[in-house]
Design a protein around this nucleic acid. Structure first.
Lengths: 202, 202
DNA sequence: CGAGTCGTTGAACGGAATCAATCGTCGTGG
DNA sequence: CCACGACGATTGATTCCGTTCAACGACTCG
């Protein structure tokens, strides 16, 4: 979820706390009273849940720019642990204040609902991409989706390595297949953009 | 998103339409005025977007029990095509009526936000599972998450084949690894349940 | 200038997909 | 009522391709 939009919405007329964490610092723990929702400004936060026999399983890794624990707005306690995975800076929005804003008027609530619904859409799409086995095909479809219908040029604003992770590929594979796509004249790479030359990899 | 909860929320004091579609029938098309949101009762609906050169890319396949086009509540037009992938029955909730309900009181809006937030949580978790390369490990973590901390028994209410798809595995692989987990004494399988015997696959 | 990271390519391995075949069950219609 | 088809569950054999390990150049930043 775009952190800026969230900020615009939740920092309205209110103090928002920004705190720094060291790697390993807990942000909150499973069972704690849910008092805040959060957004990662810098760093990464791991969300994990304790399961049977004290074992913990990773639920999500929230990277810079992501919000997390939104569901805690509607729950009394946190249902997982949040731990800074590296030195991190985190925005903290008090739950009661946020709920106040959401209740203040339908516009605010609807803005938040729109953010959530769009997040759902993005996640579903990302999940669908993962159903594509072939690395080349997955990368290509990603590019098709990232390009607008009118403009076949995709702006790459994050390191390719990170893109690879987002697509669920080893970065070596990603580089390789990008190179292969370019060699086959399907895409053209420039400094920070990738241009789709043909809308088919055949 | 649980269709029942949605129904409870959106069918309040209002007519909800239920319509049947044949395979290939369009539910709505990219660019159409967004007038409804939907839920699949039976069948499957494919959501796809037109990209450059008239090519379309699958965004999501909504199965029975899922809602779709929630984001259209906050958009003037649909941004993708929805097509029945097989004979399907679909609930249709008129957007203006739904928005009316959401504006009627904060409880309704908050119920919907809670649904969306929980959906986000589920999708993030599912995505995180996909980051696990090893089929056995992925299946095992899934089971750990599906089991409650107190009760190591997981109720399997859908065909295993479908579970395999959800986990992003070929069903053959899924059966194989389940068998292997059982052989190693890590799980115990009964008719409709799987019991976790050890919280580690080592 | 050195440490760290990104980007890139090569070689080898391993494991999941795929193709294939069988069995059991359930529903259906002749 | 039984034959048949459809589908889920299961196991075997084979193939393929993405991961992994490794090494290197380019670049940035302190």
């Amino acid at each position: 979820m775009k952190i800026k939009l969230l900020d615009d919405l939740f920092s309205k007329s209110a103090p928002m706390e920004r705190r720094d964490y060291e790697a390993g610092d807990p942000v909150f723990s499973q069972g704690d009273r849910a008092l805040n929702i959060f957004a990662v400004v810098e760093g990464q936060v791991k969300l994990e849940r304790y399961t049977i026999e004290g074992r913990s399983v990773l639920l999500h890794a929230a990277d810079a720019g992501e919000s997390f624990a939104e569901a805690s707005l509607f729950s009394d306690v946190y249902h997982c642990n949040a731990i800074a995975a590296m030195p991190s800076r985190i925005n903290i929005y008090p739950k009661d204040h946020v709920l106040g804003i959401l209740r203040a008027g339908p516009e605010n609530a609807e803005m938040f609902m729109a953010l959530l619904a769009s997040q759902v859409r993005v996640l579903r799409t990302r999940l669908e991409l993962r159903n594509i086995l072939s690395a080349k095909e997955r990368i290509f479809r990603y590019l098709l989706l990232a390009a607008s219908p009118e403009n076949p040029e995709v702006l790459i604003s994050v390191p390719l390595k990170q893109l690879a992770t987002e697509l669920g590929l080893a970065h070596e594979t990603f580089y390789r297949e990008l190179a292969s796509l370019e060699k086959d004249g399907i895409i053209e790479r420039n400094d920070k953009t990738i241009k789709i030359l043909r809308a088919s990899i055949i």
